[in-house]
């Protein structure tokens, strides 16, 4: 089983549109949406949820007013500024370290488990799909990513699938690192802008740091030919295979608005190019 993760560094370059197209093109695969705090792939795959699981992760401090003598020890010790002057825990600031509970002389602090989100095992017209919804303002997105990738791997093994295709999050931090873990290949989707190039360089470096081989596609390449060439020379310098260039195509947004993959709508340049990309990627 080969695990391919789609990344970009910069958001909005077309990760999910390309992931959805690959869902339509790749045979025998499980799809995973690892952009758990702004998941969108389900809007195109229209999953039938088969299993729904709670994601419990971390704890938050709660101060018992009846036991608290307002000694301020917890306020002074907390490094996250999570306890207010009236001895209330601000749950968006609390990182659940538990130090306040350990040092409170009156046992007035208890730690409560967080219900941080949900994750789902679903079926789609393109086969199994594992996705999640991290609760708004919750932490530990990296842990949730690791969890759903593990579930997808089990499905891939149980059903002898050939591919696991992972729609990754933007950035280079915790959930990206979790998405890269165990991947055989990373496909970086970028756009011909200074920001696109800058961010692709950083995410390529991150993939290199975790020893995952990368290849790259330039989306909307015709919006700036000179920048497309710059990205091309960056790829050449680093020995990164440039496996496709997708033109700006209205069909992409039309398919998106219709809730379909670009492969399912009437033939378009973008769809043709993504088909070639899949041939070079697999």
């Amino acid at each position: 089983m080969e695990q391919i993760v789609i990344l970009s560094g910069k958001g909005g370059t077309g990760k999910t549109v390309i992931s959805a197209a690959l869902a339509a093109l790749a045979p025998n695969k499980v799809m995973v949406d690892c952009d758990v705090d702004a998941a969108d792939l389900h809007l195109l795959l229209h999953p039938q949820v088969r299993e729904r699981r709670e994601f419990r992760s971390g704890v938050t401090a709660v101060i018992d007013e009846k036991l608290c003598v307002k000694c301020r020890k917890c306020i002074l010790a907390c490094r996250f500024g999570a306890i207010s002057d009236d001895f209330k825990v601000k749950d968006v600031s609390c990182e659940g370290c538990g130090l306040c509970g350990h040092i409170c002389p009156y046992g007035a602090v208890r730690m409560e488990e967080n219900l941080s989100g949900e994750w789902f095992i679903s079926e789609t017209r393109y086969g199994p799909f594992v996705h999640a919804r991290l609760g708004v303002a919750q932490e530990n997105s990296g842990k949730l990513v690791a969890k759903i990738k593990e579930a997808a791997k089990e499905i891939a093994e149980a059903r002898s699938l050939d591919y696991m295709i992972v729609d990754g999050p933007p950035g280079i931090g915790c959930p990206v690192i979790a998405s890269l873990s165990g991947a055989d290949k990373a496909l970086i989707v970028t756009e011909p802008t200074l920001s696109g190039l800058h961010d692709a360089q950083r995410v390529a470096e991150a993939a290199g740091h975790f020893k995952v081989p990368v290849c790259l596609v330039i989306n909307k390449y015709d919006l700036n030919q000179a920048m497309t060439e710059k990205i091309g020379s960056f790829c050449k310098e680093r020995g990164i295979p440039l496996i496709g260039r997708i033109a700006f195509d209205k069909a992409v947004v039309e398919a998106l608005v219709a809730g379909k993959t670009v492969i399912e709508v009437p033939p378009s340049q973008a769809a043709d190019e993504i088909m070639k990309i899949w041939q070079r990627l697999k």
Binding site: V92, S141, L256
Partner: peptide, 29 residues
């Protein structure tokens, strides 16, 4: 981007937040 810890750390204590979106199903979601 997103809605988890890095975003919250960035926007916390703001007097006002401007949310930028695009008119697509992804943007709306």
């Amino acid at each position: 981007p997103g809605t988890s810890c890095p975003v919250i750390t960035a926007v916390k204590d703001s007097d006002f937040c401007v949310l930028v979106t695009e008119p697509t199903p992804f943007g709306l979601n």
